[in-house]
Design a protein around this nucleic acid. Structure first.
Lengths: 224, 224
DNA sequence: AAAATAGTGTCTTTCAGACAGTATTAT
DNA sequence: ATAATACTGTCTGAAAGACACTATTTT
């Protein structure tokens, strides 16, 4: 293999792991133990192991499991980032992914793992600020018409909660009546039959994401 | 560099180059001279040269220029494709791009370079069928609301021509009146002042893409 | 009572889509 | 005349957005 006369790029894969905690979108970071950028917060990532990884998505899944114990989440390819300067070790390529996880699935955070509000995270290692920005833009765009934001919720949630996550992701307020009308049309959620009571007020019904939840599709019949 | 104990993936970059000829969306392919897949049609692509390429987009730009003489076109990242089996030489990553070019900018096709109707291309080398499918899907999706399809047109074009390219990309007919209403709203095109006469009928006015042509944006105020 | 939620209904505005033309300028 | 294009206009229906409620069930 590699009968080229020129050096090959370094290939890594990195993930923007987002979750929702206390109604705030949170980014998972790892404090780097080794140089380069030792001691600096970074996106979880690492090398592809050609012996065991089936593809890049498999590699980042393995890496997230190894470094954070995480398993079972929505994973989506973001983009690749490349160039001679993004990693001091040399010309590199990062295959970047976005993972949306439920806070509960993260469990206790291991040493060096931290959650920080996604929109405030800065000065990450490498070009990870750029990768994060790409992820947030993607989430915001898809927030307009897909079920993506709902994947951040715990498996059972209330209607105010799901409306709040859409508002958080989009950065705008939504009309309660219109939002719920849309939820029904899209058949995005279904009742669990259970309720939850916190503080005063009528108990909130608990919902779950509907099984074959309308991903994207429709809303897009019209238009040039 | 590369102080890892495990082998690194092969990294290539490949491009789905699309153009419009005689009203049909055409894919540019290269007949491979060397194994693997010698003699088979493939997407243009190649290795990244870490010495000279500023990033992956720079690499594919250089490769397209070297192999097809092409320069000046819309380039957009598609996705990465990876795994142990897509290239018989070993575990590989392809950074895939989509390039939209004007037929005129392709000039004479060099030996081994061919155009085939994009929706009929099959049995390309490697997993290039998959990459092509990804590009066509992307073009179709963006065709609903961006100026992307217009980038396939020659620099001066008529209103029937631009409507036709949108219909081609979307695979549907569009109402003339509604389409032009939208063109105006978006300020997508501007008159050149010139006209063109072919066969019978009133001469068609020639248009060009408006300078700051509304990319995506708007159309997207509404909606959950 | 106050709070938090659920639920209903209606009105407006926007806009794609469909349709029906007329007008212009060439062969 | 015929063809190809340009241009203008109207109507409809769907859906988002905004608003105003009422109803329910808890502390």
């Amino acid at each position: 293999m590699q009968d080229q006369s020129f050096p090959t790029p370094i290939v890594t894969t990195d993930a923007v792991v987002l979750t929702l905690e206390d109604g705030v979108l949170q980014l998972l970071t790892l404090r780097r133990a080794q140089p380069p950028f030792a001691g600096v917060a970074a996106l979880p990532g690492g090398y592809i192991h050609t012996q065991e990884d089936h593809d890049a998505a498999g590699a980042i899944t393995r890496i997230l499991r190894e470094k954070t114990g995480l398993g079972g989440f929505h994973l989506e390819q973001l983009a690749s980032f490349s160039g001679p300067d993004r990693d001091p070790r040399g010309w590199s390529v990062s295959l970047a992914y976005m993972a949306l996880v439920r806070r509960k699935d993260l469990g206790e955070l291991a040493e060096g793992v931290a959650l920080t509000p996604a929109y405030e995270a800065r000065d990450l290692a490498f070009d990870h600020d750029d990768i994060l920005a790409t992820a947030l833009r993607r989430l915001r765009d898809k927030g307009a018409w897909s079920n993506l934001p709902a994947l951040l919720l715990p498996s059972e949630f209330t209607l105010p909660e799901i409306q709040n996550i859409y508002e958080t992701v989009r950065g705008t307020k939504l009309d309660q009546s219109s939002f719920r009308r849309k939820l029904n049309e899209l058949r995005l959620v279904e009742e669990t039959g259970k309720t939850r009571q916190e503080s005063a007020g009528r108990p909130a019904k608990l919902y779950r994401l509907a099984s074959g939840a309308a991903y994207a599709s429709r809303l897009f019949d019209r238009m040039i």
